[in-house]
Simulated assay, not measured.
Amino acid sequence: MTDAELKAYLERARTIAVLGAHKDPSRPAHYVPRYLFGQGYRILPVNPRFKGEVLFGAKVLGSLAEVGGPVDILDVFRPPEALMGHLEEVLALRPGMVWLQSGIRHPAFEAALRGAGLLLVADRCLMVEHRRLFSL
């Protein structure tokens, strides 16, 4: 995906589900979605540890299966070894794009997503890329 294509996608996107969202402000799984929320995106935090609490103006969901409605981007903050455990839920959710944050790569998971026709960005920070593309 070129920078122009990615920027156009981010301009159209409205809803971002965040798998592994965290309530600790010092963790990337908190400050990245907080930044995105501040940019006007609707954030759907997903983390069973914090289910029912409120982050970024929404109740934290316990799983991707609880996400109601379409998701433009699924932003993933999970360790690579945990990804295959989420594959079925990700495929059922059918997000417009799956974004694996910096340091997250899993060849089999990525191949399964591509095989299902999902757009994928891996090992890049959504906040850093958004800032770069929109010169914020």
Rank of each mutant, 00 (worst) to 15 (best):
M1E: 10
A4V: 05
E5W: 01
L6D: 02
K7T: 04
R12Y: 00
R12F: 00
A13M: 07
T15Y: 04
T15M: 03
T15F: 03
V18W: 04
V18L: 06
G20R: 04
A21P: 14
K23Q: 11
K23L: 01
D24Q: 07
D24V: 00
P25Q: 07
Y31T: 08
P33F: 05
R34T: 04
L36H: 11
F37A: 15
I43K: 15
P45G: 04
V46P: 14
R49C: 01
F50R: 09
E53T: 08
V54C: 08
V54A: 12
F56N: 13
G57Q: 15
K59R: 14
V60M: 08
V60F: 05
G62Q: 10
S63R: 09
A65D: 10
G69R: 11
P70T: 09
V71L: 10
L74C: 12
L74E: 13
V76M: 03
P79K: 15
L83Y: 03
M84L: 08
G85A: 06
H86G: 01
E88F: 01
E89V: 00
L93D: 13
G96R: 12
V98G: 06
V98I: 04
W99N: 01
L100K: 13
R105D: 04
A108S: 12
F109C: 03
A111F: 03
A112V: 01
L113Y: 12
R114C: 00
G115D: 14
G117N: 13
L120G: 07
V121H: 10
V121Q: 12
A122T: 12
A122R: 15
L126Q: 11
M127S: 10
V128Q: 15
L133A: 07
